[in-house]
């Protein structure tokens, strides 16, 4: 049985930084990735707030570069899906679609995905009018009518972006004011083709093979109104990818792994890095920082258990 020093779950910025630090430290390391390097930033066109790129960098390229940086020192990537974990013993077990792996330490860097509305038919209509990324799919809605759901900064940014392409944008928010910052709000209120639907919730999609409308309920007077639209952009936050962990580590009510800046979870030798961890600021720079910190504490832990042996 092969025992890795470190198993890293997830190939985004946190995961590949952990892989870089671990392989440079001489750890026998494997990184498990479902699809391709980069994680969520793959969908980001230009990243202008990651230092070192004076003309910005696109997320896909940055992901590839991070993978290559780690592989330069011998880190390897295994493409598989993590199905389950067993952290009950000091030797940690990770169950994947390619078989079982064993490691002295595990860094969980599985990231997050867009949160769904949870309305019937949603999954079936993805790509047929239901979208989670305005910058990815917005340009297919030139001169059409779209609905944006959400009230935070990302919903505001999506609505603004779409208002420049679409004929009409409805912004549906369940409260009577936005959570988005003042700068966004001013721009939104200035826009001529954005209509706000306050205190409102989407309750049903109207579709025949693809979206052609939506039923919206006003939560104050319970009145339901039908709107015709060509597409719906859902921007109601993110959902951490932690379902495969079940109850193996402590997770908060929103699904994030409970860990402070040390990235240590409640299980010795198991660390949470990047967006999957409870933290104030979720950015590429804070994710890479977590990856390095996790390896620092993992080194401490490994030398401690090696002394014991």
């Amino acid at each position: 049985m092969h025992i890795y020093d470190m198993i890293i779950i997830g190939g985004g910025p946190a995961g590949y930084t952990a892989a870089l630090y671990a392989s440079r430290a001489g750890f026998d390391t494997v990184l498990l990735e479902k699809l391709a390097a980069g994680g969520q930033m793959t969908l980001t066109g230009d990243i202008d707030n990651y230092p070192g790129f004076d003309e910005g960098v696109d997320g896909f390229t940055l992901g590839m570069k991070m993978q290559q940086s780690a592989e330069r020192f011998g880190s390897k990537t295994e493409y598989c899906e993590v199905l389950d974990v067993d952290f009950s013993k000091s030797l940690k077990k990770v169950i994947t679609s390619n078989g079982d792996l064993y490691g002295k330490t595990v860094v969980i860097a599985s990231g997050a995905n867009p949160r769904e509305l949870g309305i019937e038919g949603e999954e079936k209509l993805i790509g047929k009018g239901i979208h989670y990324c305005a910058h990815c799919d917005g340009r297919f809605y030139k001169d059409k009518t779209v609905v944006v759901v959400g009230g935070g900064n990302s919903a505001a940014e999506d609505a603004l972006y779409l208002s420049k392409l679409a004929k009409k944008v409805y912004l549906v928010h369940r409260r009577d004011k936005l959570r988005a910052t003042k700068t966004y709000q001013e721009a939104l209120f200035k826009s001529k083709n954005i209509e706000f639907l306050w205190n409102s919730e989407v309750i049903q999609f109207i579709s025949d093979n693809r979206i052609n409308g939506v039923k919206i309920k006003n939560v104050t007077d319970e009145i339901i109104t039908e709107f015709s639209c060509d597409g719906i952009f859902i921007s109601i936050g993110r959902k951490p990818a932690t379902s495969f962990l079940k109850n193996s580590v402590n997770i908060d009510e929103n699904g994030y792994i409970i860990a402070d800046e040390s990235t240590k979870t409640n299980i010795e030798g198991v660390y949470a890095a990047g967006d999957v961890r409870t933290k104030a600021l979720r950015q590429v720079v804070t994710a890479v920082s977590d990856g390095a910190v996790a390896v620092h504490y993992a080194e401490e832990y490994i030398s401690k258990i090696n002394d014991r042996m």
Binding site: I126, K128, G129, D137, R210
Partner: peptide, 22 residues
Amino acid sequence: EVSSIPLLVVIKDGKITNQSVG
């Protein structure tokens, strides 16, 4: 009717048998 990409479409005997986004 592409509204999201990547869109993969499978065609057999002139008919779409499968399609999927992402």
